[in-house]
């Protein structure tokens, strides 16, 4: 009988399985395990894993920390094409804070190639999406949470941060910048 009628045999559990069907199941099972192991393996041996370091924070506290870094390490005022945002060049290894707000990424950082920074991400209002281009690394950014991501830029250049979480009518204007020297 077909799939729209009850099985013809009262006990169908003991029917033998077709050889090719069984082979396919075995292959699919092995492939499933390989894919599972890949994720675990990358945590051990891979160079790109999203950090699990997250803290509950407040908008005020996060903004104050960002302001402190900006006050300390600003190297120049941005041009008009940089929205006149401060351009900040903190030393390698330091904590840097990036604010997502309607509709900016603030401030602009200048980083050194091959050096590691602790990038803190948080939003001031709605959720935003950190989308680093043309690398194409994408991270969700939440308000009231401080997400600490260790980043090590491996190529110099000018990078844009596009917002890719819908955040209202000006969403498409929300673009920030990171320079890597």
């Amino acid at each position: 009988m077909s799939a729209i009628s009850p099985p013809a045999e009262r006990i169908w559990w003991k029917q033998p399985i077709d050889k090719l069907e069984f082979t396919w199941i075995a292959i699919a099972f092995v492939w499933s395990l390989v894919m599972f192991v890949m994720m675990v393996y990358w945590h051990v041996a891979g160079g790109q894993n999203l950090s699990n370091e997250t803290y509950k924070t407040t908008k005020e506290m996060f903004a104050a920390k960002a302001q402190a870094v900006v006050d300390k390490y600003t190297v120049r005022a941005g041009t008009a094409a940089e929205k006149e945002f401060p351009v900040v060049a903190p030393p390698a290894g330091s904590d840097i804070y990036l604010i997502g707000r309607l509709w900016d990424w603030w401030p602009i950082y200048e980083l050194e190639k091959g050096k590691t920074y602790k990038l803190h991400l948080s939003a001031m209002d709605y959720m935003h999406g950190f989308s680093l281009q043309p690398q194409n690394i994408n991270i969700q950014v939440h308000p009231n949470y401080d997400h600490v991501v260790k980043i090590t830029p491996n190529q110099s250049g000018t990078y844009s941060i596009v917002c890719n979480e819908y955040c209202g009518i000006g969403h498409h204007t929300m673009v920030g910048r990171i320079y890597v020297k």
């Binding site: 891979g46 160079g47 790109q48 894993n49 999203l50 950090s51 590691t116 680093l132 690398q135 194409n136 690394i137 991501v149 260790k150 980043i151 090590t152 830029p153 491996n154 190529q155």
Partner: peptide, 8 residues
Amino acid sequence: LSSLWGMA
């Protein structure tokens, strides 16, 4: 993925 910025 392996060619991107290091992240940890």
